[in-house]
Design a protein around this nucleic acid. Sequence first.
DNA 1: TCTGGGGTCCTAGGACCC
DNA 2: TCTGGGGTCCTAGGACCC
Length: 434
Amino acid sequence: MTPFTHRTFPRAILHVDGDSFFASCEIVKDPKLRGKPVITGKERGIVSSMSYEAKSRGVTRAMKLSDVRKLCPDAVILPSDYETYSLYSKRMYEIVRRYTPDVEEYSIDECFADLSGMRRVNHMSYEDMSMRIKHELDSELGMTFSVGLSVNKVSAKIASKWRKPSGLTIIPANMLHIYESKLPIGKVWGIGPQTSAYANKLGIFNAYDFAMKDMAWIADKFSKPFVEIWRELRGEYIQGLTIGEKHDYASISKTKTFTPPSTDKSFVYSQLSKNVENACIKLRRHELYTSKFAFFLKTQNFNYSGLELKLAQSVSTPQEILEAIEERFDDVWRKGVEYRATGIVLMDISHATGQTNDLFGYGNRIERMRSVYGAIDRISEKYGKHSVFLGSSFRAINERAHRGDRSQAPWRHRNIVRGEGAKRIAIPFLGKVN
DNA sequence: TCTGGGGTCCTAGGACCC
DNA sequence: TCTGGGGTCCTAGGACCC
């Protein structure tokens, strides 16, 4: 008899997790790689994803590629190819959607699905649905998935992680306590190192210890998210699924580390300018607008300095953002400090432009800017990303400029530059827009 | 894990108002 | 002038996830 509940599947929540997803996609792209230690993340210099062959040789996530080559000289190291990964990701979602419309696209290699109430429609048990989903994923996509079925998200996560790779684990409510008593508290989804250490101090070591505390005790000692986890560990269904494609964002950010670090203001600014351009590209792809943002610089010792700024109107193009940054950049910039990265975070994201009274004809200009960027997005689609970019991003995009010309003013975002191999043509911006 | 990039949610505390 | 209570909005920062 379970301590928690009687019904085996009050809700049937599935969690699907692609095994070594990026590396697996690379192996499907190039079957000759099968059986070899495959690693992705070449462009970053650290391991992003590794095949099980690589894992068994001792390769771990975030390991430096120089160490990987020593450990595993025959490793095949590839740059990330997100286009392909997203394609396989979409195919994964579609297969799961054959059995229920309620699919949450949780991340590029994971999804949740609510199978509740689908037994009659699909003419099969939840267990059979889980088996068939896994079989269709494995056979149609040519890689393996680990699948877990239980009564809520937290438990479904426990199930899918239980056996990897290629596991299928089914945990009905009356069996939850068995798995939980073998699971260290820090392995529970949503319980990280801080909370795990705190729980240990309170005498909680596994998920079952946690689940068996009473409500008042938990509520007294933990914040809301952990109370929800506690309830799900007891078999309740608390965390709903977010169904459908992701088009809404609370924030959009872009940050990029450069090596070696730099004390060169115009170079660092160009990095930031490029990040702003990229963030705006994402904004426009989802037809979104922003009216608040933060920019920051990251020093060599991982200190951050930055500012949060507001715009008079919502925008989806970089001009106003960069003008605002330009005005305040010197408040953040410290001469002689070595910076290793810049970043931008767009906030207050909305679907509409957010009407404000337009005292200075500002909106008119924004309208024109938007139509210019409509054209730019079409050019980029046709000729590749960054075939057109701002003058202020020039040094970040044209790598060679880093060592050479230092005379360029940092703020040249009023010029748009068209890149074409070695030839790059600056186009005066403001005067030409109509 | 001596450190990459992109997200989300929650809480505490200050400002301001009635 | 002082004291008390309550509400809302905003920001900084923590914690966690993939």
